[in-house]
Amino acid sequence: MSVLLLTGCATSPADSQADRLKAGLVRVETQCGVKPGTLKLNSDNLVAVMPASDAKYETIECVFRELKKPEFADHIKLGFVGNEAYAAEEQK
């Protein structure tokens, strides 16, 4: 009796989910007009939003509006990182 195992060609469900999320993030960047790389998917499948310092409010508002949609709902935790850089600018 012979057994044939096939490996290497199939992707895991986690990989395909991450690929779908990445494609969705690229779509949101394009639709909202933010610079490529503004949205990043980290290793925990959480979305990081890192807008350019000169990004317009309306474009970031569009990003957050899109990220509220169900396809991203389980991958968003809102927090602010890096605000200390702006505090230093205000003191000048």
Rank of each mutant, 00 (worst) to 15 (best):
81 V>K: 06
51 P>Y: 12
69 K>H: 02
68 K>P: 00
62 C>S: 02
66 E>A: 12
56 K>T: 04
69 K>M: 08
51 P>K: 07
76 I>Q: 05
49 V>S: 05
68 K>C: 01
59 T>I: 04
61 E>N: 03
55 A>N: 01
74 D>V: 03
53 S>P: 11
74 D>C: 05
80 F>L: 12
73 A>S: 15
48 A>C: 10
76 I>R: 12
59 T>Q: 14
61 E>V: 11
69 K>I: 08
54 D>Y: 06
72 F>K: 02
59 T>H: 14
55 A>G: 07
57 Y>C: 04
55 A>H: 02
70 P>M: 05
58 E>A: 14
50 M>D: 14
64 F>K: 08
48 A>P: 07
76 I>E: 05
50 M>S: 15
49 V>K: 08
71 E>F: 12
62 C>A: 06
74 D>F: 05
60 I>V: 12
50 M>V: 12
58 E>R: 12
77 K>P: 03
70 P>L: 10
80 F>D: 06
81 V>H: 11
50 M>H: 14
61 E>R: 13
54 D>L: 06
76 I>K: 08
79 G>V: 05
67 L>R: 05
69 K>S: 00
71 E>W: 09
48 A>K: 14
56 K>G: 13
63 V>E: 04
52 A>Q: 13
51 P>N: 03
80 F>G: 04
60 I>G: 01
66 E>H: 00
57 Y>I: 07
70 P>C: 04
55 A>S: 11
52 A>M: 06
54 D>K: 12
71 E>K: 10
51 P>G: 03
81 V>D: 10
81 V>G: 02
66 E>Q: 15
60 I>N: 11
74 D>T: 10
50 M>L: 15
61 E>W: 11
54 D>R: 12
72 F>E: 01
67 L>A: 05
60 I>E: 11
59 T>Y: 06
51 P>E: 03
56 K>I: 02
75 H>E: 00
67 L>Q: 01
63 V>K: 02
61 E>L: 10
56 K>E: 15
74 D>H: 10
77 K>E: 13
74 D>L: 02
70 P>D: 04
74 D>P: 07
58 E>M: 05
79 G>F: 08
52 A>H: 09
76 I>A: 03
67 L>C: 02
63 V>S: 07
60 I>P: 01
51 P>M: 08
49 V>Y: 01
80 F>M: 10
53 S>G: 15
50 M>A: 15
55 A>I: 04
60 I>L: 13
66 E>S: 03
49 V>H: 07
48 A>D: 14
65 R>Q: 13
55 A>Y: 06
